[in-house]
């Protein structure tokens, strides 16, 4: 996934779309919007980012899970098997992005890149609803995909590169 920080206006449509699509419980969310201001007045800059689970290639949450509830599923998406989760929260502690939370029913929940949609060829709800098209979704291993093209054409970064988790959400800057 790519997230264009120059297009994002922080409207929170992605957050609402996710809540609606996945019928999230009250008080929980799988994605969120960060507004970061840097510099000293009057030389200020602002960056708005829509953030979520980074679907890491080396996910520490999966390594820390004692029951294999957290696992790497199809297409590299990190998923949680609800029937195996004990709610021990080791994965929440291990996640460098604070992208997990305890669902009111006891299991740990997180963004799945709307796996139920993407496996049928549809886009994740957040990507589909984004009014400025700041979010793009596709196969990073396919050189012809839009996300691969954007990463070749634009400067980009990842959150917490020091974590060693190899995150797969790229922020275009």
């Amino acid at each position: 996934m790519t997230m264009d920080t120059r297009r994002c206006v922080g409207c929170n449509a992605c957050v609402i779309a996710c809540k609606t699509e996945n019928a999230l419980a009250e008080g929980t969310s799988r994605d969120w919007v960060i507004t970061e201001t840097a510099g000293t007045f009057p030389s200020l800059s602002q960056e708005i980012r829509s953030e979520r689970c980074n679907q890491c290639s080396r996910p520490p949450c999966v390594d820390s899970c004692p029951t294999r509830a957290s696992h790497i599923g199809e297409a590299g998406v990190v998923l949680v098997s609800r029937n195996k989760c004990t709610g021990c929260k080791a994965c929440i502690g291990a996640c460098p992005y604070n992208a997990r939370y305890v669902h009111p029913d006891g299991f740990v929940d997180k963004c799945t890149f709307c796996f139920h949609r993407t496996k049928t060829g549809a886009l994740p709800a957040c990507v589909e609803v984004c009014p400025t098209q700041a979010l793009k979704f596709g196969d990073l291993e396919d050189a012809t995909s839009e996300v691969s093209r954007l990463l070749r054409a634009r400067r980009h970064k990842v959150n917490r590169p020091d974590s060693g988790a190899k995150p797969n959400v790229y922020f275009l800057i």
Partner: peptide, 11 residues
């Protein structure tokens, strides 16, 4: 502390 106590056997 376990949030899903009935799954404790999963350990």
């Amino acid at each position: 502390d376990l949030a899903f106590k009935t799954h404790v056997y999963r350990f």
